[in-house]
Computed example of a mutant assay.
Amino acid sequence: MDQKRKAHQEKEDLDPESTMDGYQCCSGVKGQQSKEDGQQPREAGQQLREAGQRAREAAKQTVGISKIDGSLGQAHSRNLLFTFVSTANNSITELKVMGDKPTKVSKFDRFVIPNQTLSEVFSIDSFVPTVSRLTNLRVLSLVSMGIWGPLPYKIHRLYSLEHLDLSSNFLFGSIPPQISTMERLQTVTLDGNFFNDTVPDWLDSLSNLTFLSLKRNKLKGTFPSSICRIKTLAVLALSQNKISGKLPEMDCLTNLHVLDLGENQLDSELPILPKRLVTVLLSKNSFSGEIPQQYDELVQLQHLDLSFNSDKKAFKNHNL
């Protein structure tokens, strides 16, 4: 299956801009990579033009290379932390970039914001296909980079990906359904963006998913019942969105330890919850009724927050 996907990927056209040189700080481990893999991070880097410039400055201050289950190259500067990991066979498996552009704006009109987003010349449509050439990539983390635009459907080309973190950027629109084909994904973190469509109803296709966090977006609509079919889920965080309506019974999520749905517009009675929950955050919604007797069975529960729900008669006459 992987060979077919790789062959199909090689046939697809890539944006010409994606072949330009990129992060020079990768040169610290160049001798330990194959020629093909050595070119890939440089190509990917150019698509983050502004971040790439900072990376080149940081290359002059490279602090060195250490051996940790492969080769780890790291460059530090005041504005950027760039890390990639290659295994014994010189295959890039992790790409992590931590920037200094947190989303400090409450409103984003899908246009470039000086000193917040990357410039107009940046193209996420070109950058994602370039990164997808790292066919063995398992970890992709691009946090606070000022990346802006809709998340391209081509993200699904990263079929080996297990951990995806695109937090604190300026991504908007919908979360592309093509992600549902990325069956190896274990963690998905898209916090602090501007996604403004509904919560995807295909998330149960990710049968290995243990951690899902979509906090601080503009997601709307009802809570998809398909989430309750993700038996592997341990952490579910959808707080600070605009999710409304009724919560389904959630006791089938037998591995769930953390449930964070605070600061939404949920207006049902409280649902039945999984018995292994440790943390439940449901504050600042519109829940009503009484606390279910079933909550007495949540013997591992350490933190339950039901504060600031709109019904003054809610949750009375019950002591946990």
Rank of each mutant, 00 (worst) to 15 (best):
162 E>H: 00
314 A>L: 06
293 Q>G: 05
310 S>N: 14
283 S>E: 08
138 R>D: 05
95 L>H: 08
207 S>F: 01
248 P>K: 02
32 Q>T: 10
41 P>W: 02
56 R>S: 09
219 L>A: 06
185 L>R: 02
283 S>D: 09
304 L>S: 05
303 H>M: 13
229 R>D: 03
91 S>A: 14
231 K>R: 08
125 D>I: 06
20 M>F: 11
191 D>A: 14
305 D>M: 01
178 Q>Y: 04
49 R>K: 15
158 L>Y: 00
98 M>D: 11
197 D>W: 03
76 H>V: 10
197 D>Y: 10
26 C>Q: 04
283 S>K: 04
148 W>P: 01
240 Q>T: 08
24 Q>Y: 09
154 K>M: 01
193 N>C: 04
235 V>G: 02
113 I>E: 03
69 D>E: 10
87 T>P: 06
203 L>Y: 00
95 L>Y: 11
297 E>W: 09
26 C>G: 12
69 D>V: 08
40 Q>R: 15
179 I>W: 06
258 V>R: 03
142 L>T: 12
249 E>F: 02
195 F>M: 08
162 E>K: 14
268 S>I: 12
249 E>W: 02
298 L>Y: 03
307 S>D: 02
144 S>Q: 11
173 G>E: 10
297 E>H: 10
256 L>K: 01
205 S>W: 04
139 V>M: 02
317 N>H: 07
62 T>G: 13
87 T>M: 06
189 T>Q: 09
109 D>C: 02
91 S>W: 00
127 F>W: 15
50 E>L: 11
9 Q>W: 01
107 K>I: 13
167 S>E: 08
302 Q>K: 12
39 Q>A: 15
43 E>Q: 15
94 E>Y: 11
289 G>V: 10
64 G>D: 09
120 E>Y: 09
109 D>E: 12
146 G>D: 10
121 V>F: 08
311 D>N: 15
305 D>C: 00
61 Q>V: 15
228 C>N: 09
222 T>R: 13
250 M>N: 12
53 Q>N: 12
43 E>D: 06
15 D>R: 03
250 M>I: 04
80 L>F: 11
194 F>C: 10
236 L>N: 01
243 I>M: 00
164 L>Q: 01
93 T>K: 10
1 M>S: 10
62 T>Y: 12
18 S>E: 09
29 V>N: 05
24 Q>V: 11
235 V>C: 02
84 F>G: 00
111 F>A: 09
200 P>H: 06
280 V>I: 13
108 F>A: 08
66 S>F: 15
202 W>M: 07
44 A>V: 13
241 N>Y: 00
112 V>T: 08
252 C>Y: 03
63 V>E: 07
2 D>K: 14
256 L>F: 03
33 Q>I: 09
101 K>M: 00
216 R>E: 05
309 N>K: 12
119 S>W: 03
39 Q>K: 11
226 S>M: 03
35 K>P: 07
62 T>K: 15
250 M>C: 04
11 K>F: 06
190 L>M: 13
166 L>K: 07
119 S>C: 07
36 E>W: 15
282 L>I: 06
308 F>D: 14
100 D>Y: 05
